[in-house]
C-alpha cells in the first residue's frame, strides 16, 4: 500500500465547462445545462406570476404590469431561444442516450470512428433547427410586434 498522501487533482467545475479544445458535444452539454437552469428559474417564477389569473382581471393586469418593458421582452426572448435549443438538443439526447443514433459496436480500426461521429449530423441539425427557430421567434418578438 502507498504510505504517501496524494494531491487532489479533480478538475472541478472547470472540468464541466471544458472549453478551448474540446468537441462540439461538450459545448452542447454545457449549453444544455445552462439553458436548463435558466428555464427552470424562469419557470418557477412563472408559476407564481401567472397564478394571478386565478383572482380575476384586475389582479392579472396588475401582475402583468410588473413584467412589461423592453428588458422583460428581451428576457422572454432569451427564454424562447433557450427553449428551442434545449428542446432540439433534448430530442438528440433522448435518441442518443437510448442508443438509437450512435451506431452499432464496431471493430476499432485506426483512425477510429466513434459513436460521437455517428451522431454528429444530428448535433449539427440541432444547431441549425435551434438557430432557425430562434430567428423565427426573433421576427415575432422584435419585428412583427
Amino acid at each position: 500500500m502507498l504510505d504517501t498522501k496524494g494531491y487532489p487533482n479533480r478538475l472541478g467545475l472547470r472540468g464541466w465547462v471544458g472549453g478551448g479544445r474540446w468537441g462540439l458535444e461538450r459545448y452542447l452539454y454545457t449549453l444544455h445545462r445552462l439553458t436548463g437552469l435558466g428555464l427552470l428559474v424562469y419557470f418557477l417564477l412563472h408559476i407564481i406570476v401567472t397564478s394571478a389569473r386565478a383572482f380575476g382581471a384586475a389582479a392579472w393586469d396588475a401582475s402583468m404590469a410588473r413584467v412589461t418593458g423592453p428588458v422583460f421582452v428581451a428576457g422572454e426572448y432569451l427564454v424562447f431561444a433557450a427553449f428551442v435549443f434545449h428542446a432540439a438538443n433534448g430530442v438528440r439526447l433522448a435518441l442518443v442516450e437510448l442508443g438509437w443514433a450512435i451506431g452499432r459496436p464496431i471493430e476499432p480500426v485506426y483512425p477510429y470512428r466513434t459513436s460521437v461521429d455517428e451522431q454528429r449530423p444530428l448535433a449539427v441539425g440541432v444547431l441549425i433547427v435551434a438557430a432557425l427557430l430562434a430567428v423565427v421567434g426573433g421576427l415575432d418578438f422584435f419585428v412583427l410586434h
Partner: peptide, 21 residues
C-alpha cells in the same frame, strides 16, 4: 450526459460513450 469526451480521448477506439448509452 453524452459530452462525448471519453470516446474522443480513448487511445484504443473503445468508445465507452457508446457502451454507456
Amino acid at each position: 450526459h453524452y459530452a462525448g469526451e471519453c470516446s474522443r480521448a480513448c487511445p484504443k477506439g473503445v468508445d465507452p460513450a457508446r457502451a454507456i448509452q
